[in-house]
Write a protein that binds this DNA or RNA. Structure first.
Lengths: 201, 201
DNA sequence: TCCATTCTAGAGAAGGCATTCTAGATGACG
DNA sequence: CGTCATCTAGAATGCCTTCTCTAGAATGGA
């Protein structure tokens, strides 16, 4: 607490409360979620939203970023699994598992694509978005090196498919619903097959 | 030309012209495509749109249906490929190939999910939407029977993954852009692996 | 030529939504 | 108890979009 800084009034709604409400509104209305959906869930006036976030877009993008970070949290430990092939498969399996345990965050993550946000998001969030992908990129690069003994562009592309795009494609149609256990078998099969590809064309 | 029917004025904009403009607007603006994006591309006033389509939603959903039908056109011949495994893999490969040759239609198809439209689309289109999936369902069922010798629910689910969800997941991040040739190798690998799974848990 | 039909044309009504603005409440601190 | 920073509160504003409505043009038959 700094000298001379008056202690402000206690917030009735925390920043996370607002983001939770945004996430819940998206879970229910997806792309047509409005600011008033958020305020009515929160029981707050629109002023409380705009006091913290510059715009509707800033609110939803911030909530999206929070969900992405939650997804990334487990990655670093998974990548350290001793056996390379197991590390690859477990990275891929993290996707259906996360979707099972964090249904709302998972659905929130489907709202935007990272590449699109880099150019369309509110300027004040661009910098954060630019660095957002590094944990995943680092993990993929580490897995690529461990799998092939070197890192080529094609090797990286294959590993992205194996650990990210392919498992995501498998769960995508049912994100937000229950994910059956056998989906994990399907992920094991596809990721195993992709990890078997060579790192050159 | 029926008796007593007066010949009307020639349309300046055909139905397909309007749908093309809608598809192009979606290619550029995706979900935020508006009716005025469409009219300005077409060089037409909004009246010409609303003369043919009941609402903005009816226009875009109709364009979506047209793209889906174009995708389905090649399916029936592919399924008839003699070797079952080859038929399965070629069905899956139809997805990256279609995305390569019909970039705008492919992107248009990402605008809605069939399951959502069944409940949210304008009522006059519901019936058409209800029957839209049958060509794909028929193809998947045929492939399931040929692969396993019988049709179980789990077998169908695996085959949907192999022929549709998995390859779609692989191309999805790059739909609208150029699809590299090696993507087909990845699809072959994953679809082959999934088709190798048994039809029971 | 006149008429019925089908279309283009575009101004503007209507509605929904994000956003702003002003007032007031709250709490820490001197 | 007064002051200040921070927050709640929600009515009011203004924008943007969809959609309607009226006028008029093109076409071919009677």
């Amino acid at each position: 607490m700094e000298y001379g800084v008056k202690m402000p009034r206690q917030p009735k709604f925390s920043r996370d409360d607002v983001l939770d409400a945004a996430r819940d509104a998206v879970f229910e209305h997806w792309r047509s979620a409005t600011v008033s959906h958020v305020t009515s869930r929160l029981g707050a006036p629109s002023g409380s939203i705009y006091h913290r976030f510059a715009s509707r877009e800033a609110l939803f993008v911030t909530a999206w970023i929070r969900s992405v970070r939650r997804f990334q949290q487990a990655l670093t430990t998974i990548v350290e699994i001793p056996d390379p092939t197991e590390a690859i498969v477990e990275t891929a399996l993290h996707i259906p598992r996360f979707c099972r345990q964090h249904r709302k965050d998972a659905r929130m993550m489907t709202l935007y694509r990272h590449a699109d946000l880099l150019t369309t998001a509110p300027p004040e969030l661009r910098e954060e978005l630019a660095g957002l992908n590094t944990p995943v990129a680092t993990a993929i690069a580490a897995l690529t090196r461990r799998r092939y003994g070197r890192v080529t562009n094609h090797g990286l592309a294959v590993m992205r498919l194996a650990c990210r795009d392919s498992p995501y494609g498998i769960v995508r149609p049912i994100i937000g619903e229950a994910i059956p256990a056998w989906i994990d078998d399907a992920v094991r099969a596809t990721t195993g097959a992709l990890a078997g590809l060579p790192d050159h064309t």
